[in-house]
């Protein structure tokens, strides 16, 4: 038994090691790219900060020194790398607080909102896709396919605006924004309920916006699998239709969906930017939207780095999950 297992696990750990190294290389690329983007493409950050506004030259020079922009490029790059690893992303132009502190304080709100929506959209979308494929060309299939396509084709923040006007402004069922009622001193369960009340509409928006992709990918993946011989074999064995579907078809069809899920988890962190802005949800997305208005470049730079790191991490997770689920991976 060991004889057949050992080369397999060696193949897998080799595969995962390769993916980890690839991710680190990508991270280095992002660091360099980030530096180039903010220091070279934009040769005069302070100048463009005040572009079109009447600011005295002395003030500009003072800011340049304050932000360390007088040094040579190499010195700046070295300082940048060192600071990045110390989680020092500079001082926000807007709040004058360290960028890292600003980011850290916004993370929980985004993780809660995006986490809930990502899980819900993945689960509901996948189930919808399975139903659509298994009952293809029936009214269920048409309803699911066209419904998800419509949600998929609209700007997510516009969907949020409609839901907000409908359910918060007109009907008054939900608050118009924020994470808690203003001036609320609730604690414990009351606080939790208050937060759930606030998170409902933005979470619904993101769930509806993202489930289309899961449904479409699951559907087409399952349709590909449905022609496979091993399903005929399973049917011939005397399995019920549902068992054939759940035990043999779905596990094979879900392989690409798992990858999509993990990758999306990385992307939704940054994908909620406009929706968070609509609902004044105090997370990373709103921080980004606020930083754009400045523009608050150190803040944008820090956020961009964080978003990229999240995507790289979840991509790696996707590869690992795939290796775990698909025994064939060692050959790839």
């Amino acid at each position: 038994m060991l004889a057949s297992e050992q080369p397999e696990s060696r193949g897998r750990s080799h595969f995962i090691l390769k993916k980890v190294l690839g991710s680190l290389l990508t991270l280095v690329f992002v660091l360099v790219f980030n530096f180039v983007l903010f220091r070279i493409v934009q040769s005069d950050p302070i100048g463009s900060l005040f572009r079109g506004r009447n600011v005295p030259a002395a003030k500009i020079a003072e800011l340049r020194t304050a932000f360390g922009l007088d040094e040579s490029l190499w010195v700046q790059f070295w300082a940048y790398v060192r600071q990045t690893f110390q989680l020092n992303f500079g001082i926000s132009y807007q709040s004058r607080q360290p960028v890292w502190n600003e980011i850290v304080s916004a993370i929980p709100a985004t993780v809660a909102l995006v986490g809930i929506s990502a899980v819900l959209s993945a689960v509901i979308g996948t189930i919808g896709g399975v139903i659509a494929a298994w009952r293809r060309n029936t009214w269920k299939d048409h309803a699911i396919t066209s419904g998800t396509m419509v949600f998929y084709s609209m700007p997510d923040f516009w969907l949020g605006m409609i839901l907000l006007v409908g359910f918060a402004v007109v009907l008054g069922w939900f608050p118009v924004g924020g994470m808690t009622d203003a001036g609320s001193t609730a604690t414990g369960l009351a606080l939790l309920l208050d937060r759930l009340h606030h998170i409902f509409l933005p979470a619904l928006t993101l769930t509806l916006a993202y489930l289309g992709e899961y449904a479409l990918v699951t559907r087409s993946s399952l349709l590909d699998v449905m022609g496979e011989d091993y399903l005929t074999v399973a049917k011939a064995k005397g399995l019920r239709d549902v068992v054939v579907r759940n035990r043999h078809a779905v596990p094979n069809a879900l392989l690409p969906v798992v990858t999509l899920t993990a990758i999306n988890f990385g992307f939704v962190l940054s994908g909620a930017i406009a929706v968070e802005a609509v609902f004044s949800w105090p997370g990373l997305g709103k921080a980004t939207a606020d930083a754009i208005r400045g523009p608050d470049l150190p803040m944008l730079q820090g956020l961009f780095l964080l978003f990229s790191a999240a995507v790289i991490f979840f991509n790696l997770l996707a590869d690992v999950a795939y290796a775990w689920l698909d025994p064939r991976v060692e050959r790839a």
Binding site: F29, S270, I273, Q301, F304, V311
Partner: peptide, 21 residues
């Protein structure tokens, strides 16, 4: 190409647009 696939698309677009004007 792989690097560009991994960099989150919207933040990159935002950053570029902020810098370029």
């Amino acid at each position: 190409t792989e690097w560009f696939l991994v960099i989150p698309f919207l933040p990159l677009a935002i950053v570029l647009a902020s810098i370029l004007g």
